[in-house]
Amino acid sequence: MKVDLWRPNSLTLIQADSDVDVHIGHGDIRELKGRLKGAHIYHRVLISNLQKEIEKQLAVRSTRKRRSDFQYDYEVYHSLDEIKSWMFEMNRTHPHVVDMFSIGRSYEGRPLYILQVWTGDRSKLGKRTHPYKKAVWMDCGVHAREWIGPAFCQWFVKEALNSYRTDPVMRRLMNHLNFYIMPVFNVDGYHYSWTTDRLWRKTRSRIARYQCRGVDANRNWKVKWC
C-alpha cells in the first residue's frame, strides 16, 4: 500500500493526538480503513474522488481563460509557459520598474527566470551605487503540485505595479528595497505536474545511486545556509 503524506509534511512531525492527512489510491482504501479500525484510530474521508476535483479545477480554468483571452487572469492557475510569457510581458510593459533575467538552468535545461521589481536610476543597473538598497528575495513553486505558490508571486507583482504610484507604503518599499521574485522555483517539477502527474511534489533530477526521481527541494539545503 502506497501512502502519500499530505499533512504534516514529514513523518518526524507526526505526534500523538494530532491530525494527519494522507492520500491513497482507490484500491488501497479498504486495507487502510481496516488498519485504522484495528488500531482504534478515528478517521474520515475528506475528498472521496480527488481526480474529479482536479478535473473540476482545470475545467474552471478553461472556462475563465476563454472569457478573458484579452487579459491575464490572476485568479486561475497558469502553466509554466504561460507564466514565462507573463514575465516577458511584465518586463515589456513596465520597463521602468521591472527587469527580467535568468540565473541559470534547471536539471532538464529550462531557464530559471527572475523578475527584479524596483525603482531607481536604470542607467546604473548592475553597477555598484551608494547607498545600497536592501533586497527581498521571494521564490514560489518549490513544491511542484502546490500551484497556489506561483499564483501568489504573480499576484504580488501585479499588486506592486498597480499600486506603487498611489500607495505610499508600496512606494516607500520599492524606493528602499529591491524585490527579486522567482515565480517558479521548481520549473521541471511544476511542468511535470501540468503534463504528467498533477500530484508530483519533487524536482525531476536523477541521482545514479538512487532509484527515486527528484528531491524535495526545500529540504535540500545545508543547515543555516543563509
Results as ranks from 00 to 15, higher is better:
Met1Phe: 07
Met1Glu: 12
Met1Gln: 05
Arg7Met: 12
Arg7Gly: 08
Arg7Ser: 14
Pro8Asn: 05
Ile14Arg: 12
Gln15Ile: 00
Ala16His: 14
Val22His: 07
His23Gly: 10
Ile24Glu: 06
Gly25Ser: 12
His26Ala: 13
Gly27Glu: 01
Gly27Met: 00
Ile29Glu: 13
Arg30Glu: 14
Glu31Ala: 15
Glu31Leu: 15
Gly34Thr: 09
Gly34Ala: 08
Lys37Trp: 00
Ala39His: 14
Ala39Gly: 13
His40Lys: 15
Tyr42Trp: 09
His43Ile: 04
Val45Lys: 06
Leu46Ile: 15
Leu46Asp: 12
Ile47Phe: 03
Asn49Phe: 03
Gln51Tyr: 04
Gln51Glu: 13
Glu53Thr: 08
Glu53Cys: 03
Ser62Trp: 05
Arg66Leu: 15
Gln71Thr: 06
Tyr74Met: 00
Tyr74Trp: 02
Glu75Thr: 14
Val76Thr: 12
His78Phe: 01
Ser79Val: 01
Ser79Pro: 04
Asp81Glu: 11
Glu82Thr: 07
Ile83Cys: 01
Met87Val: 05
Phe88Glu: 13
His94Gln: 14
His94Glu: 11
His96Ala: 11
His96Asn: 09
Val97Gln: 06
Val98Pro: 03
Ser102Lys: 04
Ile103Asp: 06
Arg105Asn: 12
Tyr107Cys: 00
Tyr107Val: 01
Ile114Pro: 01
Ile114Thr: 10
Trp118Asp: 07
Thr119Cys: 05
Gly120Cys: 07
Gly126Pro: 12
Pro131Gln: 08
Pro131Trp: 06
Pro131Val: 08
Lys133His: 08
Lys133Asn: 08
Lys134Pro: 08
Trp137Tyr: 10
Met138Thr: 10
Cys140Phe: 02
Cys140Leu: 02
Ala144Thr: 13
Arg145Met: 00
Trp147Phe: 12
Gly149Gln: 03
Gln154Gly: 07
Trp155Ser: 13
Trp155Cys: 06
Leu161Phe: 08
Leu161Trp: 13
Asn162His: 07
Asn162Gly: 10
Tyr164Phe: 12
Tyr164Glu: 00
Thr166Phe: 09
Asp167Tyr: 10
Asp167Met: 13
Pro168Phe: 09
Pro168Gly: 07
Met170Lys: 07
Arg172His: 11
Leu173Tyr: 11
Asn178Cys: 06
Phe179Trp: 15
Phe185Cys: 10
Asn186His: 11
Asn186Thr: 08
Val187Pro: 01
Gly189Ile: 00
Tyr190Lys: 00
Tyr190His: 01
Tyr192Ser: 07
Tyr192Thr: 02
Thr195Phe: 06
Asp197Tyr: 06
Arg198Gly: 09
Arg198Glu: 09
Arg201Met: 02
Thr203Ala: 08
Ser205Tyr: 01
Arg209Glu: 11
Arg209Met: 11
Cys212Tyr: 08
Arg213Met: 11
Ala217Val: 01
Ala217Arg: 00
Arg219Asp: 11
Trp225Ile: 11
